[in-house]
Amino acid sequence: MRTDQAPFTLPMLVSGFVAVLVGYSSSGAIIYQMFQAAGATPAQIGGWLSVLGLAQGIVSLGLSLRYRMPVLAAWSTPGAALLATSFHGVTLNEAVGVFVFANLLIVFCGVTGLFARLMNHI
C-alpha cells in the first residue's frame, strides 16, 4: 500500500459496516432471549446490546487500524444459542458472574499462551 494513500476508503468502510451489521443483527434475537431467560429487564437488555455493539465496533476498528487489514470482533452465535437455553433458573447476577469468569479464563489462556501450547500439542 502506498504511504500517500488514505488508510481506509469509503467502499472499505461500507463493507466493514455491512459485515458488522449482519453479524450483529443475526445474533441479536438469540442474545435478547438469553438475557430475557436470565431475568433482565428490557432496559437492561437494551443497554447491554448497545454496549456490546459499541465494544465490538471499537475493537474491530482498533484492530483493523493496528494490523492494517479488516478484523471483525463478534460473538459466537452457537455459543449464544447454548447460553440462551441454559439460563433458565439462573439469576441475573449469576449470569453476569459466568460471563466475567469465562472472559477471565479466555484472557488468561491468551496471555499465558496456554491455548496455543494446547493446540500445538493436539
Rank of each mutant, 00 (worst) to 15 (best):
V71R: 01
L92D: 00
A116G: 02
G28L: 13
T41H: 04
A80I: 11
H88I: 14
G62W: 05
A37F: 01
N120V: 04
S26R: 12
T112C: 09
F101P: 02
A102I: 05
N103R: 06
L21W: 11
I45R: 09
L63V: 03
A84W: 08
V111C: 03
G113A: 06
A73R: 09
V96H: 03
A6L: 15
V18D: 14
T41I: 09
Y32W: 12
T3K: 07
V59A: 11
A37W: 03
G46K: 10
R66M: 11
M119A: 15
Q33W: 05
Q56S: 14
A19I: 10
I45E: 04
P70H: 04
L82A: 14
M69H: 07
A43H: 01
A116L: 10
M34W: 06
V18C: 04
A38G: 06
Q5M: 13
F17R: 11
A84S: 15
Q33H: 11
L118C: 05
N93E: 15
V22S: 07
G110I: 00
L92K: 06
I30F: 12
G16I: 00
P42V: 05
I58V: 15
S15V: 00
A73Y: 02
I45T: 14
P11L: 10
S50M: 14
Y32A: 13
P78R: 04
M1G: 10
M1H: 09
T9K: 10
Q56R: 11
M1C: 06
G39P: 13
T77Y: 09
A95R: 00
T77H: 08
S50F: 13
S86C: 05
L65W: 02
G46I: 07
A6F: 10
N120Q: 11
D4M: 11
R66P: 01
R117H: 13
F17M: 13
W48G: 00
P7L: 13
S64A: 07
H88D: 15
Q56C: 12
N120C: 05
Q36Y: 08
L63E: 12
V90Y: 07
A95V: 02
S15K: 12
N93S: 15
V100M: 03
L114K: 02
Q5L: 13
F8N: 07
G79F: 08
L118H: 05
S15G: 14
F8C: 08
G39T: 03
L63W: 03
A95K: 00
V111W: 04
T91F: 09
G46R: 09
G97Y: 01
N93W: 07
S50W: 03
T91W: 07
L10F: 05
M34Y: 03
S27E: 14
S76K: 00
V100E: 02
T41L: 15
M12I: 04
L61F: 14
I122S: 02
T91R: 07
V100H: 02
T112F: 08
L13Q: 08
I31T: 14
V100P: 01
S50V: 04
R2C: 06
I30C: 12
T85G: 15
A84N: 08
M119L: 15
V98P: 01
L49I: 14
A74V: 10
G16Q: 12
V100T: 10
A43M: 13
T3Y: 09
G62H: 01
V51F: 10
N93V: 10
Y32R: 05
L10Y: 01
V100W: 00
W75S: 03
R68T: 05
N93P: 04
V51D: 09
I122G: 13
M69L: 08
V107F: 01
Q44P: 03
